[in-house]
Design a protein around this nucleic acid. Structure first.
Lengths: 221, 221
DNA sequence: TCTATAATCGAACGCAAATTTGATTCTTTC
DNA sequence: GAAAGAATCAAATTTGCGTTCGATTATAGA
């Protein structure tokens, strides 16, 4: 009866990754469904077989990006190493992740606003559309909840370090924003053909940030 | 004969600031000329009396943002204080500037891509349009040159500090990107109704970043 | 082989947005 | 107070994009 996805057909994830790349180049509003479709050798119309609409595609990209990064950071945060070691590992993991997929990383920085700006359907829209919008809103909330959780991991580890005396007393939320800014920015300026690779950059940044808060400074271990 | 700008008429700068605010909310592509016009009680058509097109309005916003920030940073960089004091002052000036005008600050982070994505006019466009596009391109190049100059100010001061021994040996370009990321990010998360004001945030961030590179750590002077 | 459904596409729809046009209303200056 | 240009607007134009529709093709299971 039913037919499973054919092997030669384009996969959901292919589209998401292609979308991320088009988004990186043009930004959400300027990126057209046609562009995205072309990147996977489809027509715009075909995309609607895989995604209800453009908004849904956007959130799929962002969810993917967050999931990847969470999966790498979370186990480190929950491990029982020393706080400064954990923080260093988290910083490096995040930055290396960004440099390995700059497209998704850039989306996580640049496209959140687009996600927030998604407009509700007009009142004479189909019930189907109304329901889909509700689902979208909930999905978006869940995304932001996850994202808060991601940021919290850093705050928790830093607080831990302060309590243990490995980090100096500080304003934890501000420090974490400082850290996240430095990290996210890498997704903006990183050049795969540049002088340093992701790991090297990650270590250098971790050095600086850790030095900024360690009670007894030490460089790369 | 000719008529000088009437006093009650909307001024170029009003439009630029209004545009910055609309851009902050929606992003360049999603911001409509109508929205921007409405923010200064005009119609979209009227904007074309002041700006040739939407692109020109965008670059005007960015030029304004850069000019403001350069005017504050440059004299500090060229002063003859100690390098670490200069760097601290530069960081604070930049961050305070961002928090005082988050709209323009956000544009400096988010809208550079839109600036790069401006499309040339079609080949059957008027000569006037062709010429205007050339002018735009040059203006854009000049903008990026200025922006490089801005970033260079930081690199120069940091190198100076390393040479003088107040800063540890480090990878200067990476450190400056780290610093700029932390700074720019403030424009993204800063909340005027938040717990801390711009100055306080600036000092905290400066503490962390300087601590990250000082040879003999010290906190707020 | 036959059928249900997955996957795709070409063409068309509807709409919103940038820009143009042609007039109209102010203000300054002579 | 008239002329010239500055500043504005309503309406029309155009263009491009998201999305829908109907039809077509391919494939796994009955």
């Amino acid at each position: 009866m039913a037919r499973k996805p054919a092997d030669q057909s384009v996969h959901r994830d292919d589209i998401i990754h292609a979308a991320a790349e088009v988004l990186q180049r043009n930004g959400y509003e300027a990126a057209t469904m046609k562009d995205i479709a072309a990147a996977v050798n489809l027509t715009a119309a075909s995309l609607y077989h895989h995604f209800r609409n453009k908004d849904t595609l956007l959130i799929a990209v962002l969810e993917l990006g967050l999931e990847v990064v969470l999966k790498q950071i979370e186990p480190i945060a929950y491990s029982d190493r020393r706080s400064d070691e954990k923080l260093r590992a988290m910083i490096c993991a995040h930055i290396v992740g960004l440099t390995e997929n700059t497209a998704v990383g850039a989306a996580m920085v640049y496209e959140l606003r687009a996600l927030l700006n998604v407009k509700p359907p007009s009142k004479n829209a189909s019930l189907d559309d109304q329901a889909a919008y509700q689902a979208f809103i909930e999905r978006r909330s869940a995304f932001f909840a996850q994202r808060d959780r991601f940021e919290d991991l850093f705050r928790v580890v830093v607080r831990e370090g302060v309590a243990q005396g490995v980090f100096r007393a500080m304003d934890v939320p501000i420090f974490v924003q400082t850290l996240l800014g430095a990290q996210n920015w890498v997704g903006v300026w990183f050049n795969p053909n540049g002088r340093l690779n992701g790991e090297q950059i990650a270590e250098l940044i971790a050095d600086t940030m850790l030095n900024g808060v360690l009670t007894s400074p030490r460089l790369t271990s």
